[in-house]
């Protein structure tokens, strides 16, 4: 069995050989399902998720009765409905999660709120944007991966949005109880680090410093929070670069293949 996270101080190397400020390998693809309105597949290390976006479309008959109180509000803007399905084989132990699993519900509402902040939902009154997320493999930073995949799929679906919503996690090299003053912040936690160290998930709107999501479920000294947040926001910028490259590459390829025509104003875009 490999060493645990306490070995960091020996050579400033994390359990998987990264430095404190390095992301894991991110691999992403969009338009993975031709039949869907928008789709994406994203890997952050061994965390693998896929996303399918349907809509904006008319709400189905079943959905109308659900929220009577919020009905007035949801008519003016499109509703973002997120469903997260965690595959039984995604983690080491096969675990069955119920439909109304509390963690799952929280994931869904967090992602829905984050997307709603960036999507121009006011353009689509009386409609629903259905975001279906599937977790194929889990190795930490699940929420961040889900948000990133959902953003990509929304881009693919062509839903107008202000900017990418990009997320990543940040942590700290020593536990809360160790109370180590000189703890380094960490970027992009994997599963083992998530288990052993304090961490948070942060999502920002594109390259700006505007934080769209901030979730911290572990105990951490308030003094370390600022450093962690700074590292997290910086990570989000790196993630945006990567996602943006994925979108542009795909676009280029589609233009080259002739699937779509080159858009107006893009005549001078370099396709090589």
């Amino acid at each position: 069995m490999p060493l645990d996270t306490s070995a960091y101080s020996l050579a400033l190397l994390r359990v998987d050989g990264r430095r404190w400020n390095e992301l894991r390998r991110i691999h992403a693809q969009i338009r993975t399902q031709a039949a869907a309105d928008g789709s994406s597949y994203l890997e952050m290390g061994h965390t693998k998720v896929m996303c399918v976006v349907t809509g904006p479309s008319e709400p189905g008959p079943r959905r109308g009765t659900a929220g009577a109180g919020a009905a007035g509000a949801s008519k003016a803007v499109a509703e973002v409905a997120v469903s997260v399905v965690v595959a039984g084989f995604s983690s080491v132990d096969r675990k069955k999660r119920g439909r109304n699993d509390k963690r799952n519900l929280e994931l869904q509402s967090t992602i829905a709120n984050a997307l709603a902040a960036s999507l121009h939902t006011h353009l689509f009154p009386h409609s629903v944007i259905q975001v279906s997320l599937h977790v194929l493999s889990q190795d930490g930073s699940l929420l961040a991966a889900l948000i990133n995949a959902a953003t990509l799929a929304c881009v693919d679906a062509g839903i107008p949005m202000t900017d990418y919503v990009v997320a990543c996690t940040a942590g700290s090299t020593s536990t809360y109880a160790a109370g180590d003053e000189s703890a380094d912040p960490l970027l992009d936690l994997n599963h083992q680090e998530e288990q052993e160290l304090p961490g948070l998930t942060v999502a920002t709107l594109g390259e700006s410093d505007r934080v769209a999501v901030l979730v911290c479920e572990s105990r951490v000294q308030v003094g370390r929070l600022e450093g962690m947040l700074a590292v997290g926001v910086d990570g989000c910028k790196q993630v945006r670069e990567i996602l943006d490259r994925v979108v542009r590459d795909k676009g280029k390829r589609m233009v080259l293949e002739g699937t779509v025509a080159k858009g107006e104003g893009l005549e001078d875009m370099d396709l090589d």
């Binding site: 998987d16 061994h46 132990d93």
Partner: peptide, 15 residues
């Protein structure tokens, strides 16, 4: 229970 664990390892040259 027997579990199979797969972990990523990032190889580098700046050690």
């Amino acid at each position: 229970k027997v579990q199979k664990i797969v972990r990523e390892v990032y190889l580098r040259q700046d050690i």
